[in-house]
Structures are given as C-alpha cells and as structure tokens.
Design a protein around this nucleic acid. Structure first.
Lengths: 180, 180
DNA sequence: CCGCAAACGGAGCGGTCATTCCGGTTGTGC
DNA sequence: GCACAACCGGAATGACCGCTCCGTTTGCGG
C-alpha cells in the first residue's frame, strides 16, 4: 500500500493540481481585492469552474481559512527560527517576518490577527513572542517594561500600513521598524 | 427674504431634521458595521424610509463622502489650532486629533486617508502637517531627518490599531504615541 | 481497451442590497 | 382653512454573488 495519510483516499492527480491552482489564485485575488472578492474570479483565474472550487473547499470562508492557516504556520516557523538565534535580536527577525507576511497577504492582512486560528498554533506563536520580548528586554533592545501587549500593538500598527496591494504600502514597512 | 444660502431653495423643516438624523445614524451604523453596512439599517435607525435617504444623498457612497468630508474638515480645524500653538509641540496635538478621529470613525477609518477628498482641504492639511513637522524637528521633539512621509507613516500606523468598534481598540492608541 | 468512481463546468436557485418609483402625507405661504 | 409643492415610506426592480445540482468528461486500475 502507498504510504499516504491514513484517513482519506488519495486525490486524483488532476484534482491535486487544481487544488493548488485554486489556492494560488485565491491568494492572488484575495490579495488584490480583499476578502470580498468573488469566487467566480478566483475560479476563472485558476482555470477551473466554481463547482471545482466548492468540491475542494466547503465555502469561501473555508478557502480563506486555509490561506490564513498556512500563513500562520509560516509565521510559527519564523518564530522557531528567531528563537534559535543566540543573541537578543530574535524579536526583530520575527517582526520583519510579520511585516513580510502582511505584505504578502495585503488585502486581507487584518484577518491574520483577527480570525480565530488553530489554538495550538496561536499559543505557540504567542509563547514565542513572549520569550523573544523578554530576551529583547534583557538585551536592552527595547525598554525593560515592554511586554507582549506592546509588541502586539507594534505588530498591529505595522499591519495598518498595509492594506492595499499598491507598491507604496508594500514597501514602507521596513522603514517603520527603523523609526524605533 | 430669509438670509439662506443663495443658490438652493430652503429645505422644509422636517427635511432638515431628517437629514441630520440620517447623518447621525450613518455615522453610528458605518462606525459599527463598516462601510458595507446596508442603507436600510441606517434608514431604520434614523426613523425614516430608504427613499428619504436617497432624496437627500445621491447614493450610499455620497452619504459616506459627506461623513468623511466633515471628518476632514474637523481635522483641518485641529491643524489650525495646532499651528497656533507657540511651542514646538503642535504636532503632538494634531497626532492626538488624528487618533481621536480614527476612534470616532472606527469601522471606516481607513477611508479617511484613502478616499479622494476636496483638494483644498487635503492641501491645507498636508501643509499644516509639514509645518508642524518642521517645527517639531527644530524643537528636537522628533529626529531632525523626519519629514512628511514619516509622520504620515506614523498616522497610518495609528489607524491600523483601530478598525473595530470594540472597547480595546478604541482605547489603546494614546498608549501607542507614548511608545515614542 | 473497459468500466467506473472521481472530477469537472457552469447554469440556475435563493438571498442580499443598492437604487428607483409612485401613491399617499404634510409643512407652508396666502 | 386651502392648495400645492415638497416630502415621505416602502414595495418593486435589477444586479451581484455564494453555493448547489446534474449531465458530461477523464484519470486509472485491471
């Protein structure tokens, strides 16, 4: 027997390819037009019919959720990497990762922080930020009184700089970090 | 003859009252539900029918524009006031005014910077910010290299902290200014 | 090459909402 | 108090969009 995930029957090859195309297209279209973009546009750009989108994703929301899940996963990975950094500058790396993520998902970046995510991922990310904040405070990179709340505020502020796919807004955020 | 605005015939008393109610209701409903709130809700909360809304405002967009126009007008007034301040701290006043405006218009605050406004107002506001920034730089409140772009970035970041009518987001912004 | 489960596309259904229209109502000037 | 223009409410219209359904096509194991 093939060593697939045990639960579900494997998808046909064309189905796998289409699912990937749909996700790519959704990232693109949601990125350009925001979460209210219509499914037909996503399907068209993926080169499939709307029915195909709905056979793979239960609803428009579920499709969005999948994009967000992956994005949070990526941020978690970035957090792990930042934690591995020996000096006290891991927090900066993570902040940059957040900025890049907001830029990559311009148009629906606000959902990255607002939606309810997998609690495990959320907790892991939160713990990493706390640890990195403590280290940065110890290293003197940030004020000694700064806590999780302050860093989250900073992250939310960064997100505010990015809510359109225009060239300007996707490039100013590194400068914002420099202001500090 | 009554000393009204010369061009248009005066509105009937009930029409004036209703127009005010509609604007108040729109501020409320857009504030709670964002720009995609539906006209019927606005009309209902104002105690009028949708027809009445449309007799006074050409479209939903026009209604929104009117709210934004007034908001920008208020910010311009705040800028004038800030300019009148003799020390170099006028910029702080204006930043606080922006924060308050974003809080007052939570739910559609992003439109305050994004929409095209009356060029005269926009220019006046921009000039005021430039002048205040220069004064703040001279007074040493902010770095000497900071320019209009940096301040606009700061303002956009503040806006990012506010995009819901929830109690938390409408109260953290003053803290953000303190971080600097 | 066959047979069929899995996949596909896109027309159509149902619901939401902006905007229009018009028969009934109400300030206002005389 | 009258007459009428200005107003008003809300049903109706039309556009849009998420989602479902079903007849047709296609990958793939034998």
């Amino acid at each position: 027997m093939p060593a697939q995930t045990p639960q579900a029957r494997a998808l046909r090859r064309d189905a796998v390819r289409n699912a990937e195309r749909i996700l790519d297209s959704a990232r693109e279209v949601f990125g350009e037009s925001g979460a209210e973009a219509c499914i037909e546009e996503i399907a068209a750009r993926a080169g499939v019919g709307v029915g195909t989108v709905y056979r793979r994703f239960a609803s428009k929301d579920a499709l969005m959720d999948e994009l967000l899940r992956v994005a949070i996963e990526d941020l978690s990975a970035a957090a792990e990497l930042a934690l591995a950094r020996p000096d006290g500058h891991g927090l900066e790396d993570l902040l940059r990762a957040f900025g890049q993520s907001f830029a990559d998902h311009a148009g629906y970046a606000h959902l990255l922080l607002d939606r309810k995510h997998d609690p495990a991922d959320a907790r892991r990310l939160r713990a990493a930020i706390e640890e990195l904040t403590a280290r940065a405070a110890a290293a003197g990179t940030i004020g000694p009184g700064a806590g999780l709340g302050d860093v989250m505020t900073l992250i939310a502020a960064m997100r505010g700089l990015l809510h359109g796919p225009d060239a300007e807004s996707t490039t100013v955020w590194p400068r914002f970090l420099d202001l500090h």
